[in-house]
Design a protein around this nucleic acid. Structure first.
Lengths: 147, 147
DNA sequence: CCCGTTGCGTTCGGAATCAGAACCCACTAA
DNA sequence: TTAGTGGGTTCTGATTCCGAACGCAACGGG
């Protein structure tokens, strides 16, 4: 199967990856959550090659994850901002961050620290079940196909 | 910058992606969480080309996400199982699933349903702050670089 | 007026990866 | 003996990547 047809799988993970599963795309989103908005800044901070970045931004806009908004006329300049659909990817990026902190930093301190304004604490977010409020362990979950 | 040097960034997201950020890798993990263990099954269920799958399994094993365990001698047969490090990627896969459910299924029912054995309910896991127990909204979080 | 700079891309190769089909090997079962 | 299974590897053409260079519109200074 070709990667470009990955969205045809009847699976939400596959369909999500058809939008955000390409190289560099997650790093673009990481930057977007760090309030990066401009092409040059995305380019320098992610390290993505310029043609690749241009293409990724285009498809994120086409898929409604970012919106391209003019912030200057003469010359026309555009910035890229997260939409609601894009902001909803926060758990994905944070989960990657958490995993990298735990398993990929060796003995060093994690490079970034999250602080929760609501409670003022340094934060290590985890998945919880909204019904019972418990932290989710994969071995407590049954996944069943509906079709 | 080359993708192969992505792990050199001082960022946990980048380092996580150096292990799980390649095409097909997340689908392999999706299957692993669905209790797939064998090469043939991974191949059919993810749709990844065989040489790509072989390479992905190898690097996941090299990175300690999967372990390769012999389940038969004569002929030698191996299966791939999640390690603790691999199981800890569950929030990433589930977050992708949730996002795909919300934004990529149109009006249809999500293809997979999660059920929490602890409480018996159908489950839609969310990120929460362990300190205060609140659900995490990206706008309530400050991310600050430590170096 | 000319020159350098900024911002945002596109164009153009060669290099790396991918994708699909075929093949290989060890064993088992009919 | 032939077919099938499990787990790969090899081969080749098609994509994709990547880095450097270029384009273009405006702006700022001398």
């Amino acid at each position: 199967m070709r990667w470009s047809r990955i969205a045809e799988q009847d699976c939400s993970v596959a369909r999500a990856l058809s939008v955000v599963g390409d190289r560099w795309t997650m790093l673009v989103l990481r930057e977007a959550f760090m309030r990066t908005r401009r092409f040059e800044d995305f380019q320098v901070r992610t390290g993505a090659p310029r043609p690749v970045l241009a293409e990724r931004l285009r498809t994120l806009v086409d898929n409604g994850v970012l919106e391209r908004r003019r912030y200057s006329e003469r010359p026309d300049r555009y910035e890229y901002r997260l939409t609601d659909k894009g902001r909803d990817l926060y758990p994905v990026v944070v989960s990657l961050l958490r995993w990298g902190d735990r398993w990929m930093t060796g003995t060093a301190e994690p490079p970034v620290e999250l602080r929760h304004r609501a409670c003022g604490h340094q934060m290590h977010p985890e998945l919880a079940c909204p019904e019972c409020g418990e932290w989710v362990d994969p071995r407590d979950v049954d996944a069943t196909a509906r079709r």
